[in-house]
């Protein structure tokens, strides 16, 4: 275990500024959105949105969601978190292992008494620490901003909904990053795993968000998309525990399957010279 934690510590030291900058950056963006919402007349917005076509509103949520401060914040921040942070996590996940292969540092690391499970396991653990810390910083800044905003105070500060959204975001981004990590374990190449990770991300986004526009017979394809199991509006605005539980279970299973698959593949692979 000493070697396992030693590897994680090394990665944290290496990426500490990246974690702070990314978490702080997204947090700052969230702070501006919260400030913007405080200045918005949500009642007038509701009136404006009610004139929009129904399909438009369906795509972005519904009228109640858009006119709700939590709904508006969730739409702006959490629904697009894959864009703000997800792509960077994919880049990080892709390079964690394959950079070591490309820079040949893996030979030195694996010639020491550390098992392949521990070696890759430490990188995967770091990936989740990275995601949890970054999103944690973002959520803390957001909570602080909301606590300072009279609009949100009037609406109420729902810590349990925040916690639910936090776990859901971590598992959702974790699954996206693990797809790239899985690819990186197969190909041991940063370029290939980033390309495939980003490609799969957009395919899943398309399937998970636009399935309603597809032929009804093939709409079940939505079930293979990670995006279909990420519904922060339902947790933040509607406090829908049934959807939250389903999403957490499925996203958790996807994460575990990708972790186990990566460890299994890496344990059987030759380390290229």
């Amino acid at each position: 275990m000493k070697r396992f934690f030693s590897s994680i510590k090394e990665l944290i030291l290496e990426k500490k500024f990246m974690i702070l900058i990314l978490g702080g950056g997204i947090g700052l963006l969230s702070f501006f959105i919260v400030a913007l919402i405080s200045d918005l007349d949500l009642q007038s917005m509701q009136d404006i949105f009610s004139a929009f076509p129904e399909e438009f509103l369906e795509f972005f949520g519904d009228l109640a969601v858009l006119a709700n401060p939590y709904g508006f914040w969730t739409m702006e921040m959490l629904s697009f978190i894959w864009l703000y942070a997800g792509i960077l996590f994919i880049f990080t996940a892709s390079s964690l292992l394959s950079h070591e292969v490309e820079n040949k540092t893996i030979d030195l690391s694996l010639s020491k008494p550390i098992s392949r499970y521990n070696f890759l396991g430490s990188k995967i653990t770091f990936l989740y620490v990275f995601i949890m810390t970054t999103i944690g910083i973002f959520f803390l800044i957001t909570l602080g901003s909301m606590a300072a905003s009279s609009t949100f105070r009037t609406e109420g500060i729902f810590l349990e909904r925040f916690l639910a959204a936090y776990f859901s975001v971590v598992l959702f981004l974790g699954a996206l990053a693990m797809v790239a990590k899985f690819m990186s374990t197969i190909f041991l190449s940063t370029k290939k795993s980033i390309a495939l990770g980003v490609m799969i991300l957009f395919i899943m986004f398309f399937l998970g968000e636009f399935y309603v526009y597809m032929d009804e017979a093939i709409q079940d394809i939505k079930y293979i998309s990670i995006f279909y199991y990420f519904n922060p509006v339902d947790y933040m605005v509607n406090a829908d525990t049934a959807i939250f539980t389903r999403d957490i279970v499925i996203l958790g299973t996807i994460n575990v399957a990708l972790i186990v698959g990566s460890l299994f593949i890496f344990n059987r692979k030759d380390i290229p010279n």
Binding site: N103, K104, T105, I106, D107, L108, S111, N273
Partner: peptide, 9 residues
Amino acid sequence: YLPGDLGLF
């Protein structure tokens, strides 16, 4: 072990 193609951080 000292590898022939040494890769360091």
